[in-house]
Design a protein around this nucleic acid. Structure first.
Lengths: 336, 336
DNA sequence: CTCTTTACCGAAAGCGCTTTCGTTAATGAA
DNA sequence: TTCATTAACGAAAGCGCTTTCGGTAAAGAG
């Protein structure tokens, strides 16, 4: 690879001048700048990112930490949609994403250490466990950070309006005539799970609807299997609900499965409304009515918030609550 | 951040010795090594990746280029599953993944240039267009590379056994008594599409089954919409097939939609078999029978092939064909 | 007791780039 | 014509690390 030195030699200028020409310094004449640019072209010169970062202390990279309990990594449709949006926006500003592991050449180091090692300019974390010590460590560090899907951390936050989402779901169900509404909740240890429960309770309360015994059930960490198991419990109740608000689409899919296996059908016997609006939601049978999270907007705002911190060179404590939307499909129907 | 110089000062040794201790050189005594390691611990020292890369010419990063026509990026379930597997395997060897764009600080440069700039140790590309000039440029460069989902390039390749997959599908359909079998193909410009067509034809031939006019139809770039459109054309034929092998699960989902809208049902009226086995396949109605691509294995072999080239410091021209598997679910049934 | 090994350690150069600060020549002001 | 500006360029240090090549002292050989 040609270096800055090579093109200095070729043009007869010093490396200083070459560097300046490349970085648009004002104290280099237009004429020499053109000569240099031409040599750059001819020799196919490209700067070396590492040398550049070493001397400027800026790497133009953003570390992404992806953590969810089910070990699916980037296969997770909701998280990966957010990251994709984040990537597009960060890209536009000139940043590359780097996915780091905890394993630095077989020494088990923390994510923060790994990101420090790589000298990333910022970190984005998508994580559902608000207590994760790794995440806490990063939040407490000096590296700009934005965390997605949590709502009360001492840093910049981007999350969906989960309370509103819960209310939307319940109100919709109620508008269809349902009163015996259950909630298969996401684990209350996750902020998203807890907030959706809050929204559920609030809406039920405002509607003067009682929450029957056993109608608020923990569906765990949002997986299909857990959703199915939770629904099975609901089905064993003496007084089975006529509608259930499920805190995640995967869980909702599991719930529907449980209902079908029991010989009942959705929405005729039981209405189901999910949360997320993953791609699959529109294609299962019945097509899933759900609360859509705006992954594009989440990614966009996260990128924006992170850029802002990087530019201002200081961590900002802000939160951005992103609106959600009711997507009506076929899994809910009028109470008979 | 503490540097190697700081810990040299603290321990009284030279930076040379510190570096050697950290890199397990043999010419540093156990005693001084321990002293240095302790200082490292106390000061929370971490090496600087950029300085290290600059001097060793090795960055411990792998560039990933993700390209598919539908602009979904990492949301693509099949591709992201492969990348996830690749990541896990590369990680184990100490590599981080970097997702680069074509936009280097607002200058529009090629992927190859971007990866050169970042000085990645290797490149993995998942791309369906074998002619993509960007991909060709990378293949012709000196950077180790492995490309996934193509099967005749002058580099290391990993791909599914698409011919066998096509045959598996047709044979299965035939075993159910079907003879009027159509194929909604992936674009023949993609290797995967072309090979599946080959498998389809071969199997039909071996079975002495004629391919009726209009039974081989181009479904384009594997999207739901295109699959639906293709199926609609099949449904307009005078002699509608009783079974169709669809070259991708997304297209299959679209095909099923078309069939349902026509008032027919799967598999009672028409059997459908897909390709890929994306997550959704198991949850749509009817559950999709499909040819499963082994994404874990593809990612694993790709990582292995890339590591090998990196270690040997030379590009290798090999291909790894990964077996596929018939997954029987509910979208195909005995011909009535 | 002398000579060759061996074990340890360090000086210094180099990786490719940026940036401060100084220098020179050309320009304008007086 | 002389002095202060300004424009254009370069020397050199520095970013944090690795690695070659010597050098010294201790150990072993003869």
């Amino acid at each position: 690879m040609a270096t800055i030195y090579d093109i200095a030699k070729k043009t007869g200028f010093s490396t200083t001048t070459v560097s300046k020409a490349l970085n648009n310094y004002s104290d280099v004449s237009e004429k020499t700048k053109q000569k240099i640019l031409q040599a750059v072209e001819e020799m196919g010169y490209l700067p070396n990112a590492h040398a550049q970062s070493l001397s400027t202390k800026k790497s133009w990279t953003i570390g992404v930490m992806f953590s969810e309990s089910n070990e699916v990594g980037m296969k997770h449709p909701f998280f990966s949609a957010i990251i994709e949006s984040f990537r597009k926006n960060a890209e536009r500003e000139g940043y590359d994403l780097i996915f780091a592991s905890r394993n630095l050449r077989n020494r088990d180091i923390s994510y923060l250490e790994h990101f420090s090692y790589r000298a990333v300019d910022g970190i984005v974390v998508i994580c559902s466990d608000p207590q994760d010590p790794q995440v806490q460590e990063m939040i407490n560090s000096t590296i700009p950070i934005v965390v997605i899907d949590m709502n009360k951390q001492n840093c910049s936050l981007v999350f969906s309006d989960n309370i509103e989402g819960g209310k939307l779901a319940v109100n919709y169900l109620h508008s269809l005539g349902h009163t015996k509404i259950a909630h298969i909740a996401g684990d209350a240890l996750t902020d998203a799970g807890a907030e959706r429960i809050k929204g559920f309770k609030k809406a039920m309360n405002e509607l003067n609807l009682p929450i029957h015994d056993g109608y608020l059930i923990n569906g765990g960490l949002f997986s299909i299997g857990e959703g199915k198991a939770a629904m099975e419990k609901l089905l064993m109740l003496d007084d089975v609900p006529t509608a259930v608000f499920v805190a995640g689409d995967h869980m909702a899919i599991g719930a529907i499965e449980a209902i079908k296996e029991k010989g009942l059908s959705v929405p005729e016997d039981i209405s189901i409304i999910g949360y997320d609006d993953i791609e699959m939601a529109a294609y299962i049978t019945p097509k899933l009515t759900t609360i859509k999270q705006d992954t594009d907007m989440i990614g966009y705002q996260a990128a924006k918030l992170l850029m802002k911190q990087i530019i201002q060179k200081k961590k900002l404590i802000t939160s951005k609550r992103i609106p959600v939307e009711l997507i009506i499909r076929e899994s809910c129907s009028q109470k008979k």
